[in-house]
Simulated scan of single mutants.
Amino acid sequence: MTATYAIALGGNRRGPHGGPADAIRAALARIGGIVAVSPVIATAPLGPSIRRFANAAALVASDEPPPALLARLKAIERGMGRRPGRRWGARPIDLDIVLWSGGRWGTRTLAIPHPAFRQRRFVLAPLARIAPGWRDPVTGRTMRQLLGQVDRRVPRP
């Protein structure tokens, strides 16, 4: 049975395929089954990294169950120069499963929906471009609604 996955793509360091936006394009070619791709956006880094990120989202059709797709995405990351390192550090490519048409999935090594995606504009903005009506299986809110919530969160002085 073919499922649809929402994949977040990002990177902020040159790798064997060029700059971060080039790495996103190269990763998409390796993933295959692409149904839709958002534009690439530039975003500020989270955590200790000082380099800006290139981020995008893709909808991918696959017969693979979530753990098999995750293993394939991690192999693509390694093949594109990703090395284990500090969390949120500089990297040529990062591929995360954000949503799955099967709803929720949870194991020790994989949680779908991605646990932090609701707070991350750099994930929600690209996703809302290609799947505005996709509902989060936890909150029931659409990607457009979740993006609106993130955009309304303005720190008070």
Rank of each mutant, 00 (worst) to 15 (best):
31 I>Y: 05
143 M>N: 15
12 N>C: 00
71 A>L: 06
144 R>Y: 02
5 Y>S: 10
131 A>E: 09
124 L>N: 04
155 P>I: 07
79 G>K: 06
108 R>C: 03
22 D>F: 03
57 A>E: 08
58 A>T: 12
147 L>A: 05
13 R>Q: 15
121 R>L: 00
11 G>I: 04
121 R>G: 02
155 P>F: 03
134 W>F: 09
153 R>F: 02
4 T>A: 13
11 G>C: 04
99 L>H: 14
139 T>W: 00
54 A>Q: 03
55 N>M: 00
157 P>F: 12
71 A>F: 06
10 G>Y: 13
106 G>V: 04
77 E>T: 07
107 T>Y: 02
8 A>H: 07
131 A>Y: 05
45 P>R: 07
25 R>W: 03
25 R>E: 13
49 S>Y: 00
85 G>H: 10
42 A>E: 15
34 I>R: 05
157 P>E: 12
107 T>M: 01
76 I>R: 08
91 R>C: 12
1 M>T: 10
9 L>C: 15
153 R>H: 07
79 G>R: 08
21 A>T: 08
128 A>P: 05
69 L>V: 13
139 T>D: 04
14 R>C: 06
75 A>R: 14
73 L>Q: 07
44 A>V: 06
142 T>H: 02
140 G>N: 11
58 A>G: 12
135 R>H: 05
116 A>F: 05
148 G>A: 13
